[in-house]
Design a binder for these strands. Structure first.
Lengths: 109, 109
DNA sequence: TTTACATATGAGCATATATTCATATGTTAG
DNA sequence: CTAACATATGAATATATGCTCATATGTAAA
C-alpha cells in the first residue's frame, strides 16, 4: 500500500494541494508583470488616480485600467471614487510586505 | 520645472525603475504557476530527485525538468548529481520565506 | 442640454508560456 | 559492448496574457 485514496500522492511528502497551489500561483501571477509591479510600487507611497498612474508608469490609461481590474479582483488594490477620478491604493500592508520580500531577494539574493 | 531628465518620470513619486521592476516581476513569475508552486512546496521539505517530484506533483518528468530549468536559472533551486539521479533543493531559505509570505496572504488575507 | 474629461471594458492581435512528444545526453547494470 | 534508466532539451501546439483601439459609462463644466 504505497498510497491511499487521500489527497496526498505520497505519504512521506505533503505537497500543497492543487487548489491552494493554484491560488498562491494566482497571487504571484498578479505580481509577475513589470507594469503591475511599477503600479504597485507607486501605490505603496500613497493613493493615486488612474491618469497619474499611467503617466508615472509610462503606459496608457487603458492598460492601467485593465491591470487595475485584475488587481482589484485579487483584492490587492482598493478603489475610491472622487468626482470623475478614481483613486487607487494598496488594499492592505500585507501587499507591501510581500513586495519588499521579493525586492530583498532581487537586490541582495 | 515638474520633471528633470533623470530616471524618474515625476518628482513627487518614485516608481521602481523598469529594470528592477522587470527583475522583480520575473521572480514572481517563477512562482506564478501551480505546478512550480507545488514543486517548490515539495522541495521546502527537503531535496528530491526529478522522478519523485514528477510523481508527487502529478505531471510528467519532462514537464518537471522544464520547470526546474527555469527555477535553476533564477537561482531558486539548486541541483546535486548523485549517480543517474539529480536531486534538487531550494537554493536558500529566502525562497521559503517568500513562499510563506504568499501563503499567509492566500490563507487569511 | 452639449462638450470635455476620467475611467472602464470588449475585441483583436502579438507575444509568452505550459505541456506533450520525440530525441539526446549521460549513467549504471549485465 | 548493449540495454535499461534518469534527466535534459528542442519542436510543436494550445492556451494565456498584455497592449492597443474603439467604444461605453459616468462626471463636471459651459
Amino acid at each position: 500500500m504505497d498510497h491511499a485514496g487521500s489527497g496526498k500522492a505520497h505519504a512521506d511528502v505533503d505537497v500543497l494541494d492543487e487548489e491552494t497551489a493554484a491560488r498562491l500561483a494566482e497571487l504571484f501571477s498578479a505580481l509577475s508583470d513589470s507594469s503591475r509591479v511599477r503600479i504597485l510600487s507607486a501605490l505603496a507611497q500613497g493613493e493615486m488616480h488612474v491618469g497619474a498612474l499611467a503617466h508615472v508608469v509610462g503606459i496608457s490609461e487603458s492598460a492601467v485600467s485593465h491591470h487595475l481590474r485584475g488587481l482589484r479582483q485579487m483584492r490587492l488594490v482598493r478603489a475610491r471614487k472622487e468626482g470623475r477620478f478614481v483613486f487607487y491604493s494598496l488594499d492592505d500592508d500585507h501587499i507591501a510586505d510581500l513586495f519588499r520580500c521579493g525586492l530583498d531577494h532581487v537586490r541582495h539574493g
